[in-house]
Design a protein around this nucleic acid. Structure first.
Length: 812
RNA sequence: GCCGGUGUGGCGGAAUAGGCAGACGCGCAAGACUCAAAAUCUUGUUCCUUCACGGGAGUGUCGGUUCGAUCCCGACCACCGGUACCA
């Protein structure tokens, strides 16, 4: 590894980087004019959670990418919004507080200070006057405001949901705090306990979240993930009456055409009818089974799903298609949370039902021909049999016909179901946005009025579990208990806080108008800047964050707060930076690279350049110390191209022109511009290297080319860019200088090399004028000595000529 | 299992309206400079074969379409990401 002393003596990164960072701060070089007349460009990074361990080398990858685009766009005349902030609520700060008795607010503040220093040292062009922090009451006032709007519109509601309750700790745990059914801290047993929770009705937006994906410039894989997550499926609901009871239940199926093949039905263990319909003889068996299921952990119910279990209730349902009596079973392969919590089982044509039927000797009837019922379920298409009025039809028509029949006979209807569930929006934590709701002693509930927002977190000396499952806020009696000044009615504040996802679901709106006291942002400003033009972050947020943010945005659109249906027009996922052994970086493996060390040894510009040169932005590539050295070597090479040992400008840079560099310069401007636009930074850098190599070979570099090259390099290596620009005789910053243009006419060569092939293999080459005709090329190829050797004794069958490229002779 | 993606030198990776595979960088080798080293500069570097000129093979595997395939089609294998009995 290179250390400080190992670098060229002339380029002092520490000094130069500090100089320009101070310049940018002092001059507020990157301050954005919200209402500028220029065309707008909004380049957004996923803001970080300021953890105690500081910045990771993965962070600067995405940040550098948006920074390059931001710097280029400014030079292209855009008004650029490029902000940064902190997603600062979250579990680690609370855990730290529980462990040490210190304040999570103070801990968070320190972490932010570290992150901010580290980020500033990397030279990103953020407008720091727009910095936001989700834990700032001036910010979360509006997070709470959005919640009250959701509540007013009936999209926030309370439901009873099981949570991970740890009796020993007296607290509710997040899934990641539970390991093998024990608490991560202390190893105490954890049980599932139902608790009242706030939910957000994201399912009401399922269709729009799905449909509007179409118009977004997002990676296809990511859209697909969201589609799967939403999981829309079309089918039908079918009602089954229960034999001997005056009740019926409904099942959801995507294959109503197979109804004649339904030989039993299954209810989820949690289905409310299970207890009511179970017969006396089956009572013990069913209760035993329900108990068994309750004590199964999540893992056992999902992972060990190989062997199907279940029990007969003793009751029978009537198949509405043929009025046959079929048994009703209870089995945990049917989930209460999907569809209606009940299914019709068609073992002949559903793999899971087949497995279950085989296990419990239930009848299997073939209703779609094409498979072999003795071997496996057949889910393919085929003519229907044993199906009354559907016989002979194929699946598609049979589905339609069955749905019509069900509707006409009042036994069912067409139905669309989603996999997406409502959003569990409450956490039993202190360190989050308080949910602005008051529960009154008369049982009513009201939202905290807008003028009383923000509802600030009370300062608590020592944060400790309430012991009841409520958040530590329950201990803050002065805060929790309220009295209505008008009526004197007593009330209690909601003690649940919001999840970390809340603040990050709308932060990009606040950057646009961060200090607005009257609204979350000025509607006029939102109109100027939305949607975000480019949003870059890790793929780990592909589903939750991006779905939640889209949901809130659509809601805000519906109530007229934002002008667009979607928040992020173009989205890109950066890849991961792995350790040198191609493994994830982790403290335990000891392969973590600290950006501070690199900034110190190689400089921020080198780190930025290296991370962009490692490979395509979305690829996961292993860190390489020698690769990093190579990046530094290139910057040193650029420096020496223009600057002498004593710091003066080399006399290679001249006022005149040099046609030897014309082509490569214009090619470089073109390729770098296009590559930056497409986020192909690795190939842009390689072109900058090609130019540098050529520039080394000539005696004179026209100043215009030197300046153009520096402008192209500047977005990636801004400190060196500024310094070289200065030394080329231009005082002030390069930030708003015009982006270089290229001249297409300089790119065409009069004489080009074409390839001469025999049977598709290159056998010779020829230099010809660019506009040589097809016929001439053919003649030329046939006359070529090498080609004659290769075609001697053979018959020429065909000659393919691609003007400007090649001639291929088919001969045998 | 299902869905999505990716397979190219010793390594990171270039090149796809089908037309010279390996740009650029790393590493390695040789040379120049130096008392020497580092740094720097120059040259070479897919593999096999040949003293050389040259020839052959080659983009995960097998097959297809084509004058011509890294690129298009089919089957398969490996790895990465997502998801998990979703009826």
């Amino acid at each position: 590894m290179l250390h400080e002393g190992g670098h060229s003596m002339s380029y002092h990164h520490a000094e130069i980087e500090k100089k320009w960072q101070e310049y940018w701060d002092k001059h507020k070089t990157f301050k954005t004019d919200t209402y500028s007349n220029k065309e707008k460009f909004y380049a957004l990074d996923m803001f970080p959670y300021p953890s105690g361990s500081g910045l990771h080398v993965g962070h600067p990858e995405g940040y550098t990418a948006t920074d390059i685009i931001s710097r280029m766009k400014r030079m292209q005349g855009y008004e650029v919004l490029h902000p940064m902030g902190w997603d600062a609520f979250g579990l680690p700060a609370e855990q730290y507080a529980l462990d040490t008795g210190n304040s999570p607010a103070q801990f968070t503040e320190q972490n932010i200070a570290t992150f901010k220093r580290q980020i500033k040292e990397l030279g990103f062009s953020y407008d720091w006057d727009r910095e936001i922090n989700t834990t700032d009451p001036n910010y979360y006032k509006w997070t709470q405001w959005i919640f009250t709007k959701l509540y007013e519109k009936g999209l926030a509601y309370i439901d009873e949901v099981p949570v991970n309750w740890c009796p020993a700790l007296g607290t509710v745990l997040a899934n990641e705090e539970v390991i093998d059914g024990k608490s991560e801290r202390g190893g105490h047993p954890v049980i599932r306990k139902p608790m009242k929770q706030w939910m957000l009705r994201i399912t009401a937006y399922a269709d729009r979240l799905l449909e509007d994906l179409e118009e977004l410039d997002w990676p296809e894989s990511l859209k697909e993930m969201q589609r799967n997550w939403i999981g829309r499926s079309e089918g039908a609901e079918v009602t089954f009456t229960i034999d001997g009871h005056d009740k019926d239940f409904t099942v959801f199926t995507t294959r109503p055409d197979t109804l004649f093949g339904a030989t039993y039905t299954v209810l989820a263990p949690e289905h409310p009818y299970v207890k009511e319909i179970t017969t006396a003889e089956q009572k013990d068996a069913v209760e035993g089974y329900l108990h068994e299921v309750e004590t199964k952990s999540e893992l056992e119910r999902t992972d060990l799903a190989k062997d199907k279990t279940g029990v007969f209730t003793g009751a029978y349902a009537i198949n509405p298609a043929n009025d046959k009596k079929i048994p009703i079973w209870v089995a945990d392969y049917v989930l209460m949370s999907y569809g209606t919590g009940a299914i019709m089982a068609v073992p002949g044509h559903d793999e899971r039902d087949y497995e279950f039927a085989t296990e419990f000797d239930l009848p299997i009837i073939e209703v779609v021909s094409g498979g072999d019922m003795t071997k496996e379920a057949y889910a393919g298409d085929g003519p229907h049999i044993n199906s009354g009025f559907l016989d002979g039809l194929h699946t598609e028509e049979a589905i339609t016909k069955m749905i019509d029949w069900l509707a006409q006979n009042g036994k069912g209807e067409k139905k669309i179901t989603y996999r997406l569930r409502d959003w569990l929006f409450a956490r039993q934590r202190y360190w989050g946005e308080p949910i602005p709701i008051i529960h009154w002693e008369d049982g009513s509930m009201t939202a905290v009025p807008e003028e009383e927002l923000p509802l600030e977190l009370p300062v608590i000396k020592e944060i400790k579990p309430s012991g009841t499952g409520e958040s530590p806020l329950a201990n803050a009696e002065d805060w929790v208990n309220v009295v209505d000044p008008e009526t004197g009615m007593k009330g209690r504040r909601e003690t649940n806080t919001m999840p970390q996802w809340a603040g990050s679901s709308w932060y990009f709106l606040r950057y646009i108008d961060p200090n607005n006291k009257e609204a979350l942002a000025d509607p006029e400003a939102l109109k100027e800047w939305l949607p975000v033009d480019l949003y870059i972050g890790g793929a780990e947020h592909a589903v939750l964050h991006l779905l939640y943010a889209r949901f809130w945005h659509k809601f805000l659109y519906d109530i007229g707060v934002v002008p667009t249906k979607e928040p992020f027009q173009k989205l890109y996922n950066q890849g991961m930076i792995l350790g040198e052994g191609n493994e994830k970086m982790s403290k335990s493996k000891g392969n973590v690279v600290n950006p501070d060390d690199i900034v110190h040894s190689h400089g921020a510009d080198t780190l930025r350049l290296y991370e962009m040169f490692m490979g395509p932005l979305d690829a996961s590539v292993a860190w390489s110390t020698t690769g990093l050295d190579g990046a530094r070597r290139f910057l040193d090479r650029v420096w020496r191209l223009f600057i002498n040992e004593d710091g003066s400008l080399t006399d290679k840079v001249t006022e005149g022109s040099n046609e030897k560099l014309d082509k490569v310069y214009h090619e470089t401007v073109k390729k770098v511009t296009i590559d930056y636009d497409n986020l192909h930074f690795n190939t842009a850098i390689s072109q900058l290297m090609v130019f540098t190599n050529e520039a080394y070979k000539v005696d004179q570099i026209p100043k215009e080319y030197a300046e153009g090259f520096v402008k192209l390099l500047y977005p990636i290596a801004p400190h060196m860019g500024e310094e070289l620009w200065d030394r080329l005789g231009n005082p002030g910053t390069i930030t708003y200088e015009a982006w270089p243009a290229f001249d297409e006419s300089k790119l065409v060569e009069d004489e080009i090399e074409i390839v001469l092939q025999v049977m598709g293999k290159v056998r010779s080459k020829a230099n010809v004028s660019r506009d040589t005709s097809k016929e001439e090329l053919e003649q030329l190829a046939l006359a070529d000595e090498k080609i004659q050797e290769w075609t001697r004794g053979k018959t020429v069958r065909k000659v393919i000529v691609v003007p400007g490229k090649l001639v291929n002779i088919v001969a045998n």
